[in-house]
Amino acid sequence: MLEFRNVSKVFRQGWLKKTEIVAVKEVSLLIKPGKIFGLMGESGSGKSTLGKLALGLLTPSAGEVLWEGRLRTNLRSLPKEARLAIQGISQNPYGVFNPRHRIGYALAEPLIYHGLLKNEQERLLRIREILELVNMEEDCLRKYPSQLSGGQLQRLALARILLMNPKLIVADEPTTMLDLTTQAQIIHLLKRIHEKKGVAILFISHDLPVVTALAQRIGIMYGGRLVEVGSTQEILTNPLHPYTQLFLAAAREEVVPELQSNTNNSKGCIYYGSCYQSQELCAVKTPELIPVKREHLVACHLVNAAKNG
């Protein structure tokens, strides 16, 4: 399915004085077909960048993004089906549609462009079917995006990508800009689509209850690195990485110590500066993401030491 192999993304800025921002660093991850993977982490931890790398909106600075064993870096070289297999919805449903196009056109456009359903009648039938799936009335087709609410637009954004028959949906904080009841509707909808169509979802969010309700597996990111991956159950009951523990505590609204600024230390552990039990080794050597149990991977020297000793 979708595989990240040692993927890094570095943004370079400036002309005379170059500054580098490392958004994602050496991330390896496998997202399995038909499963929901929850990607969590604080703002700026690189989870959205990882989502954009998956969608092919960004190209990795190092490493490879593979889709069913094929490189996804050069989208043009891929067959149409593989190119369209990964689709995304974003946190801002108001911006997803061109303000000058009616919803009907916006939904039909990719179908027409790719020559997927050439017959107009067939196209309309398919659009109706999808609208029903996302609980939207047909009269929205004649409306402009500005005439619809955030929740409606998000459902339509979902409808538009479903028309492409994606195998993986990258949902980058799809509920952050919506009110609570609408959030619940969208989450419910995503779950239903997942069950009905068997589509895999990469669900990016910092909202722990939502992620745990949806995802079968969870990955935690910190400072551009993936620090822990495991099944939802495992992560919740047995978090091993110090940062994961802190993250979960914070999510349960416990008082947590303030994090030290991320010392952009390329040698040691990314969490070294803030970790409450860091050791000498942590300052000089980057811990690798190593399995401690079946399907539970942690990048921490302490955990590895405990496991080995």
């Binding site: 190119r83 689709q87 997803v96």
Partner: peptide, 24 residues
């Protein structure tokens, strides 16, 4: 964002330029 989403929907540069950017 609508340009970004047009890209993930696989629409070509020319199409995006004349159908999405020009009207705006």
């Amino acid at each position: 964002e609508f340009v970004e989403s047009a890209r993930t929907l696989g629409l070509g540069s020319f199409h995006i330029l004349f159908k999405h950017l020009l009207p705006n």
